[in-house]
Each structure stands twice: as C-alpha cells, then as structure tokens.
Computed example of a mutant assay.
Amino acid sequence: MPRPRTGRRVRTLLAAALTTLAPLVFLTGPAQAAPAAAGAWTPAPAPVVSHVETDDPVVFITIDDGWATEEAAGARQLLLERRIPASLFLLPDAYERDRDYYRTLLAHGPSRIENHTTTHPDLTTLTEAGQRAEICGARDRQLAAFGDGPRLLRPAGGATYNWPYHNADTRTAAPACGAEAIVMWTHDLTTWGSWTPPTPELKAGDIVLLHMGPTLEADLTRALEAADAAGLSPAPLRDYLLG
C-alpha cells in the first residue's frame, strides 16, 4: 500500500487553510453558535473533503450507518481477506446491536470507526450546541465501546437529506468534538432497493460511499473491481487527511 507523499500532505494542509479563510459557497443554514468567551481558544473550522488531492494510486472506501450486520458477514470476510482499510462511519445504536462484528474488523484488519452522529439527524436543522451534542455524544459512546475515538465526521442527512448535510455550525462543532475533517464522498456505489448505480471510472483520491446491509458485499466487490481496473489500491483515509 503506498505511503502518503509529502507533496500531497502540503496540498491538503493548504486546501484546509483556504477552506478556513474562504467559507464554502455551498454551506447552508444560519450560524447560531454562541460567541466564545473572551480569551477562550476555539479550534479552526473543520475542512470539508469529498476527494483527496494526491498523485498516489489510491482510493478510499467508506461505509455508513452499521445496521444489518447479520446480512453482511460476507462483506466483513472480504474486508479482512483483502485487508481493506475502510472508514466506518457508524451510528452507536447500530454497532451496539453487534459489537463483535466491528470488534473483529478492528482487531484483525485495518478498518477504523469514525463519527456519523448519535441519532442520524439533519444537522442543518440544529443549533451549533445541538450539533455538538450529536457529534460529541457519538464520540463518547465510541470511546466507551471500542476505546478509540473518531477523528473524522460524516454528517447524516436525517429524514430530509438536505444536501450537503452540513453548515458553518457543523464545521465549528466537529473539531470541538475531536473530528478534524468533515468527509463527504466522490461516488455513492450503494444499491438502493432494485436500483444499482452505474460504476464510474475511479480516479486517484476518490472517496467511495457504501452502506452496511444486505447489498454491501456485492457493492464492495464492485467498488474493488473498479479500483483494480483503474490500478488503484484502497488506502486509509485518516492517514491521507490527517497525516
């Protein structure tokens, strides 16, 4: 598996700095965070990433939610056999139903569990304090369950799926809860019902979104075949975003 290159790291840091200085045009919703107390230190807003700028021949596999593990035994075996460093953006109530599934992935493979909020709300409908409660609450439960805290956040869409699922308050709340980047995706390859999205030609640095459930093994196989066809290897997203 390629190691992140220094040039890629510099570009990522530069992109994060530019993101901090120039608010993204697609952020939605009012900023409702209370002003910081005089002299209080506040972290810089988290950057939003949907593709990693890198010359390395790598792709990033991400899996959301965490339900229906009993129907995804084959997917777990595939992740372990091929040692796929998947980023698992999980809900606490989902992994609490089958901790052993995820403990096996963490103990015997390179996957990591990341933050997907506590109850999967549309974060853009919440105040900054409400968003912190969701994000910090998920972090605390993950620490209790696995002894490892998340460092990346994927905001949930709730019932409204009000794209892009985050706003300025999210970018402030995330680092306050230990999330150093907000991760979206380049391609969603999840099969929904009878509809399977077309398989794209993957490019270096693409972030692939999948979901835990009965179609995960087939969707993961399709994503890995697309990566193989493009000469790309799955790589750990944390390493490339955080160094």
Rank of each mutant, 00 (worst) to 15 (best):
H116S: 06
L90D: 02
L220R: 04
G213L: 02
H108C: 03
E114R: 03
A68M: 09
R132T: 12
G158V: 02
L202W: 05
A156V: 00
A86I: 07
H51M: 05
W195Q: 12
V59P: 00
R5L: 14
T54Y: 09
R103Q: 15
D206G: 06
D148Y: 08
Q142I: 11
P200K: 03
D206Q: 01
A40M: 11
E225I: 01
E134H: 07
A46P: 04
L241F: 04
L88G: 06
R238A: 11
E71S: 12
T119P: 07
A218G: 00
R132H: 14
A38C: 11
L126W: 06
G130M: 10
E81N: 13
P4H: 12
R222H: 02
L224C: 07
A176H: 13
D56K: 00
D93I: 11
Y165G: 09
P23W: 13
N162Y: 10
R171G: 03
D55A: 13
L80W: 05
I182D: 00
R171I: 00
G39W: 07
L152F: 05
D206R: 00
I61R: 03
A17M: 04
L79G: 07
D122V: 02
V59M: 03
T42C: 02
L224T: 09
T118Y: 08
A36K: 04
Q32K: 11
P85Q: 13
T196L: 00
D122A: 13
M1Y: 14
P30R: 12
I207P: 00
T117P: 02
G178W: 01
V10N: 08
A16S: 13
E225C: 00
E180M: 01
R76W: 11
P200Y: 08
G193A: 11
Q32A: 12
Q131L: 06
T69E: 10
T69C: 04
L220G: 02
L88Y: 02
D65M: 06
L126F: 12
P45D: 14
E201G: 10
E53M: 01
G149I: 13
D169R: 01
D65P: 00
I135M: 01
E217S: 00
P43E: 09
A138T: 09
E217H: 14
R3Y: 11
A173V: 01
P47Y: 05
D169L: 03
A223Q: 01
D100A: 15
G149Q: 14
P164K: 04
A15V: 06
T19W: 15
R82K: 14
G7T: 11
P214R: 07
V10Y: 13
Q131N: 02
R112V: 14
E128H: 14
A17V: 04
R154M: 08
L80P: 05
V49L: 08
L224G: 04
I182W: 04
A36Y: 05
T127G: 15
G7W: 06
N162F: 08
A40H: 10
G109Y: 07
V49N: 03
E114H: 04
N115S: 02
T12G: 13
